[in-house]
Amino acid sequence: MGKMIYVPTAGAQSWQALLADPTKQWPTGYSARTLAHCWEAAEGLPPEIAALFGSDTELLIAIPEHKVSLRDTGRESQTDVFALVKSSNRTIAVAVEGKVNESFGPTISDWYVDASLRKQQRLAFLCELIGTECPPPGDIHYQLFHRAASAILEADRFKTDDAAMIVHSFAQDRRGFDAYAAFLDLFELAAEAGKLVSKTLPHGRTIHFGWAQGDPRFLSL
C-alpha cells in the first residue's frame, strides 16, 4: 500500500522525486518530465484530456505517480497520473499513462515466461477484473492490463461511477498506438486517437479508454 497522505506539488519539478528512478526517468523529452509540465501548466485537465470526456468535464484532483495495490504481495502498479474527474454528473477514476518514445514494456509472452505461481495468480486476477480471457494473447503488452486494472480498482475504492484508462501521448508519430489498439481489440473496441470508447465489464462497471495527443511544446521543457 502506497502513502495515504498527499501534499500539493510546487510545480513540475516536484514530480521528479516521486519517480521510481528520479535520475534516469527525468531527461527533457521523456514522458515523465513532459507529462509533469503539461499537467502543471493546465488549469484543471489538459485540454486534450478534457476533450475526450466532453465540454462539462472538471478535474477534481490529480495525483502524480500514484501507486495502486493489485491485491497481492507483488509490485504495485505505478500510474503516471491518477485523476478523479467529474463529467456529465458522473465521477470517473482515471489512470493516465504518459508516453513519448517509450514502449508499453514487455508483452504478456515475455512477462509470463516460466511464470511463478504469483504471476499466474496475478494474471488471472487482472484478466477477471478487466473481463478478458486468461491467458490473453501473448503479443498484448502487460502494462496495459495493470494500468486498466488500476483504474477499476480505484473506481471501486473511491466509489466512482466509472473508470477510465487514458494514454497521454506526446509522440509525434503516434508510436505505440498499434499496441493500444490491439489491447482495445480484446474488448471488441476500435481505437481512435482523440476519441473515448467504452465497455461495460461483466461485474457492471463501465470502463472508458482514450488516446490523447499531447502538445509537443512540452517536449522541450
Rank of each mutant, 00 (worst) to 15 (best):
T107E: 03
G74Y: 08
S77L: 02
D161I: 00
L59G: 04
A32I: 05
K3N: 04
Y180E: 03
V68R: 05
R118H: 14
R75T: 06
K86S: 07
G204N: 06
D21A: 13
Y6T: 04
S69T: 11
E65G: 13
G54P: 15
A171P: 13
H37Q: 03
A41F: 09
G131W: 08
A17T: 05
L60V: 14
E40D: 12
E188L: 04
Q172C: 07
L189W: 15
G176P: 03
S31V: 01
Q213R: 00
V7W: 02
H203E: 11
K3V: 02
P137W: 09
Q16E: 14
F53I: 04
V96D: 05
A182F: 11
D185L: 09
F170Y: 14
L221G: 11
V68K: 05
D161E: 04
R118Y: 12
I140G: 06
F158S: 00
K67C: 13
P202E: 06
V7H: 05
M165K: 02
V113M: 12
Q172A: 10
L19E: 07
A36V: 10
T200N: 09
T57R: 07
A191D: 11
N89T: 01
F158W: 10
P135N: 02
D80A: 05
S88K: 10
P135T: 01
L59D: 03
F53K: 06
G176D: 03
K67P: 09
R118G: 12
Q25F: 09
L45Q: 01
I5V: 14
S220Y: 13
L184A: 12
G11T: 08
E192Q: 10
S14Y: 11
E76K: 05
S150G: 14
R175T: 00
I130P: 13
G29W: 09
T200Q: 14
S116T: 14
P64A: 13
K199M: 01
G204I: 02
S116Q: 04
Y30V: 00
A62W: 10
A193H: 06
K199G: 01
G214I: 03
A148S: 14
L184Q: 13
A163H: 02
S69W: 12
P27K: 05
S150N: 11
L59F: 06
A62K: 08
S103P: 04
Q16W: 10
A191L: 10
P46I: 05
R122W: 08
M4C: 11
R33G: 01
L153C: 04
I130G: 12
K67N: 14
A163R: 00
A171N: 15
L19V: 02
L60E: 13
G176S: 03
V68W: 08
P137Q: 06
H37K: 02
E192F: 01
V100T: 15
Q213A: 04
A12T: 14
I140N: 11
R174F: 15
Q121K: 15
P64I: 03
G138E: 12
A36Q: 09
H168G: 10
A17M: 05
G74W: 08
T9E: 07
L52F: 10
H208Q: 05
H203V: 02
L189M: 13
S87F: 07
E102Y: 06
A182R: 15
T28D: 00
S87I: 00
R174P: 04
T73R: 07
I92V: 14
A181E: 09
A191G: 14
C134A: 07
D161R: 03
E154G: 00
Q13E: 15
V68L: 07
